[in-house]
Design a binder for these strands. Sequence first.
DNA 1: TAGCAGTCGGTTGTGCACAATCAAATGACG
DNA 2: CGTCATTTGATTGTGCACAACCGACTGCTA
Lengths: 175, 175
Amino acid sequence: MLRTVSDRTDEAREPGDEPMPPADSEQLLRLERQLCFVLHATSRAFDTLYRPVLAELGLTYPQYLVMLAVWEHGERSVKELGQSLRLDSGTLSPLLKRLEKAGFVRRERSPADERSVVVQPTEEGIALRERAGDIPRRILRATGLDEQQLSELHGALSNVTSALDKAAEEIDRRE
Amino acid sequence: MLRTVSDRTDEAREPGDEPMPPADSEQLLRLERQLCFVLHATSRAFDTLYRPVLAELGLTYPQYLVMLAVWEHGERSVKELGQSLRLDSGTLSPLLKRLEKAGFVRRERSPADERSVVVQPTEEGIALRERAGDIPRRILRATGLDEQQLSELHGALSNVTSALDKAAEEIDRRE
DNA sequence: TAGCAGTCGGTTGTGCACAATCAAATGACG
DNA sequence: CGTCATTTGATTGTGCACAACCGACTGCTA
């Protein structure tokens, strides 16, 4: 059964802790479930599309993200990579080792601070950038989005993500 | 304060108000990269938020998705689960075994067709549904989205996903 | 009815992702 | 100087995800 959506939800929006009163839950809950599910699905759809394209270069999608960061900045510490890509060392360490073994990056301890490891592209890694040049365009076409839609979607996802981060942070603080 | 991905890029271009940007590939490529990245990030942000909540029930997020499907339909074949959740048997088989070992589902070969395996909730699995009842509401609040935004985002993601699926299908057909 | 192509799950191997834990280096403080 | 908390990567263990492959079952067809 389908409830009418148009019930009011107009009350004051405290970003803090509203008890979340709406009795019209059915519809909302359905939406929540669908959102989580479709997000999952979209993520995997992207992955599926990138996979064969990147395979030509010998990269996986997360490896590609790392190479993008390294190409752009010339060199990045593991910490910086982890922050910008939202990955922890348990994920990055083996991933970077695979990239090193593949010959795309060099890893070395910083002389300034022996705790940090600096990642930089090798010659081969830099050369790879050329071969990867047309990937974004190919992917872009597949999405079927124009610039407007692209940036709207990006904005919406950014907002959700930062809301979720804030919520997680909140929970963190509570213990 | 915690910044997300969408931080300003190096230049001061405001997205959305391009006058007439047909040949301006740089901007487009940047958007592509950001979209893929933020999608990845959003997916993980959701996961991070769900993780501790579901841990109370002894479920992971994909397991939760399976239970949602099973709760709703009473019983589902592995094939059906795979189709609706976009998971293949290599992922589902061990996942279902873990759910079985946890006591939430039963798995048995269909008498009608010995090839297929039917999954259904146990008593304990059905009981779990009650305890999971308030999860959507808690998550929903954390997203900070109202119903309108929620369904817009859902629509946008659905469109992208089906475009990507179509593209992948296209590629498939070409070999 | 005998054979065979297609369907359905399962297994194996690789890689991503996180939690928990650890060791080494650093930096602040007495 | 020595102590100790912090920072930084690495390691281990669990679970998700897919590709490639296998074996059992089904259903069609010669």
